[in-house]
Design a protein around this nucleic acid. Sequence first.
DNA 1: CGAAAATTTGACATGACTCAACTGGAGTGG
DNA 2: CCACTCCAGTTGAGTCATGTCAAATTTTCG
Lengths: 192, 192
Amino acid sequence: MNDSNARKVFRDLDFTASELVLVESKLEEIRVRKGDLLLSAGQSVPFQYYVVDGCMRTFFITDAGRDFTLQFAVSDWFISDYTAFFTSGISILNIECLQDATLLKLSHQSMEELYREIPAIETFFRIKMERFFGSFQKRILSDLAMSAKEKYQTFLKTYPDIEKHIKNYHLASYLGITTESLSRIRHELARA
Amino acid sequence: MNDSNARKVFRDLDFTASELVLVESKLEEIRVRKGDLLLSAGQSVPFQYYVVDGCMRTFFITDAGRDFTLQFAVSDWFISDYTAFFTSGISILNIECLQDATLLKLSHQSMEELYREIPAIETFFRIKMERFFGSFQKRILSDLAMSAKEKYQTFLKTYPDIEKHIKNYHLASYLGITTESLSRIRHELARA
DNA sequence: CGAAAATTTGACATGACTCAACTGGAGTGG
DNA sequence: CCACTCCAGTTGAGTCATGTCAAATTTTCG
């Protein structure tokens, strides 16, 4: 199991034997349990995490104490506070485990080394970023243009696999509405 | 003027003479006038654009005909429908000129060629993407967590240079509110 | 089974929207 | 130089979606 971590993360890439050893050496497998906080706001963020299985989320807490989910991550997703990770800055996000998870931890420094040794990895991450970017763009547009009900329906359609892993209040915090509102939306949709 | 386009776009990079020639050959300078549509939804998006000067915006039109601005771009910004650009898909965004502009046009294919010939350019764009990504992340969080008034104030603080170039109704469409609401917010803030 | 957590429901408050009318400039042409 | 028009912005009245707070109900899990 452990000897194929590199192939899990970099699913589409072919490595030579020596490259494989190098990549493996950069990936650290960790396990976290439901409720664990992997990162708290205010810390530096030297790592990103590849989710082997389980479910994680990043969230933001306002001064007023409201909790907003930026992102969920299930199997084969990456998660981090990327703004802080990329800029070597301080996190504003928290990372929480929602379902017991196995993660592969990859440091910023390791990534720079991998970029140097294996240029295909820089391309790999550039393309990941591009996709991620696209999903953020869609998110912004739907936050702007859609009602809460439409956002909920879009979420269910787009991420049917995620819904199973999360509580309604996490989904509400992702949609930017209260649990009460989500409950009413669900009630209304159930009638139809 | 024209012979330093490459240095404008790739501000921090040092090119050899031959690299400079290559990069220049990939950049096409174009001029657009206020009101011009550079891209309409439903088209393929083979280009991204570097803004030398002037002001552009990308916007999205819903089925109901509402208009939402995703992004403004002034001097030294890039603009495109990146989701379509990266995936070679069909645009959902429109690109409009808000103030007469000079742009440098760069095709997807040219970028792939540049990545191959000059790896530093791949790194350059990866880092651009990372920054862009960070700004999108902030946008999502503020859309979720802030009232219209707070979003307006944050915009003014974050992009004081952009406000000068745009109409209030463009700003409203960026904030996801109506011009009437923006007007009332401005009125309220003016009193204080 | 029982306690804690999650969800639902009800009553009411509020921020933002809609529609319609009005104001104030910036051109434009007689 | 005035009258006209167009466009951007403002204002007002009424409506609607979502929030708040409190309580009831259901689900989860030790």
